[in-house]
């Protein structure tokens, strides 16, 4: 279906101070478009989790928002380091987050499972030394 809107947000590795700004903008954009409160919350939670993951774990990347008439899609694409064991990374409680992330209240190993739980469709592709791409879509009722 036709993409009504596409926006790309660069996310810098280690930028803890500004982490979450892209998600805030995305939430406000979708709210203006009239996306319902419940779907909006699912998108926002997954978006915030994935943006934090980019800041905490990646070497930098982008977060892309696509809006279609029947769904919202978020694509997180980074330039490394890649995830060696995706199954392990998807396990609740497993975390490789550093001390800085933990001090801020993150890194409990809930991020990826929480993204999957909040999205209608969830896909993760990763190659060590290349990067990770996470695609999440959210059906608009």
């Amino acid at each position: 279906m036709a993409v009504l809107m596409e926006k790309v947000f660069p996310v810098e590795a280690g930028a803890y101070g500004t982490a979450g700004e892209a998600s805030t903008t995305i939430k406000r954009t979708l709210k203006q478009l009239g996306v319902g409160a419940e779907v909006l919350r699912h998108v926002s939670v997954a978006c915030y989790e994935v943006e934090l993951n980019l800041v905490i774990h990646s070497l930098g990347g982008t977060l892309t928002l696509q809006v279609e008439p029947d769904k919202v899609t978020l694509i997180s694409k980074d330039v490394g380091p890649g995830i060696p064991d995706i199954e392990k990374a998807m396990t609740e409680g497993f975390s490789t987050a550093n001390e800085e992330a933990r001090t801020l209240g993150f890194g409990a190993g809930m991020g990826l499972p929480n993204m999957k739980r909040n999205s209608t469709e969830f896909d993760i592709q990763s190659e060590v030394g290349v990067g990770t791409t996470i695609t999440m879509s959210f059906a608009l009722k």
């Binding site: 979450g20 805030t24 409160a37």
Partner: peptide, 15 residues
């Protein structure tokens, strides 16, 4: 008891 801007950002995401 945690004080940083992420408490507000997390809260905004969740309403």
């Amino acid at each position: 008891g945690l004080i940083n801007p992420h408490v507000v950002r997390t809260s905004e995401m969740l309403d």
